[in-house]
């Protein structure tokens, strides 16, 4: 079997002297969705930043298609095939929705986005507006569409459903399913269990910076996950 799209081993790190994430391991294969679950503050977003190169790992390694990318800066990781949709400040507030979607496309054509506009017509209606004027949920949808439309083999989504209407969350799940069928690997950080249950193949449940549960969706008992999500 070939190397997984993304693998991370013994990843530890945080901000400055503060260690948030301790000794995490995981892997995502092509055509697979790994959901990282946990309450807020347990280190999920920190894990994403370590994987994307915004924070240096104190120890451990990150591998893309079996190749270590530890020294890569975020833009180099993107060029190596990793798309990231952050949880906070997910869009360029000062740019129009159109510019947000076409920033990195040479021809600046919106044609390839047509299928997404059919699912999320709100974006097409707001193309000329500054993204800063969108609601929190709308920004998340914009960020999600931008990320998926980049057509990269690996997509990291940090709480894509936060603030999004349930109807659009369902559309997101369908988009992910379609991409997955085409071989894209996903690592999705979530707090919304109902959404996670629709998309996940496997779970990684975190608490206090550490892995609590790990395994396929079928193997992990819902009640035990809830125990880590509830207050």
């Amino acid at each position: 079997m070939s190397a997984p799209r993304l693998a991370f081993a013994n990843v530890t790190g945080g901000y400055g002297s503060t260690v948030i994430v301790r000794d995490l391991n995981g892997a995502v294969a092509a055509g697979e969705v790994l959901c990282v679950l946990g309450r807020n503050g347990v280190g999920k977003s920190t894990l994403m930043k370590l994987l994307c190169g915004y924070l240096p790992c104190r120890s451990g390694h990150v591998l893309l298609d079996g190749r270590p990318i530890d020294g890569f800066e975020p833009s180099a990781r993107r060029r190596a095939g990793l798309t990231y949709c952050p949880q906070e400040r997910p869009v360029f507030d000062d740019l129009s929705v159109r510019d947000n979607l076409s920033l990195m496309h040479a021809a600046r054509q919106l044609g390839p986005l047509r299928p997404y506009f059919e699912r999320f017509p709100i974006l097409e209606r707001r193309l000329g507006q500054h993204a800063g004027t969108l609601s929190g949920g709308e920004k998340k949808v914009l960020s999600f569409v931008r990320g998926l439309a980049e057509d990269q083999p690996l997509v990291l989504l940090d709480e894509p459903s936060e603030g999004v209407q349930w109807e659009n969350i369902l559309h997101m799940a369908e988009c992910i399913a379609a991409k997955k069928a085409a071989g894209t690997a996903f690592l999705v950080v979530e707090q919304n269990l109902a959404f996670a249950e629709r998309i996940a193949d496997r779970y990684l449940v975190m608490d206090q910076g550490r892995a609590m549960l790990e395994g396929s969706r079928a193997d992990i008992d819902r009640g035990r996950i809830l125990g880590h999500l509830h207050v």
């Binding site: 833009s75 990231y84 997910p90």
Partner: peptide, 25 residues
């Protein structure tokens, strides 16, 4: 211009600009 929007993107949100493959440096 394209470079102009990339600069605006970098100024507005440097982390996201990096996530989209812009070498902020």
């Amino acid at each position: 211009s394209r470079t102009g929007s990339r600069i605006r993107a970098m100024v507005s949100n440097p982390e996201l600009a990096q996530a989209q493959g812009i070498s902020v440096r």
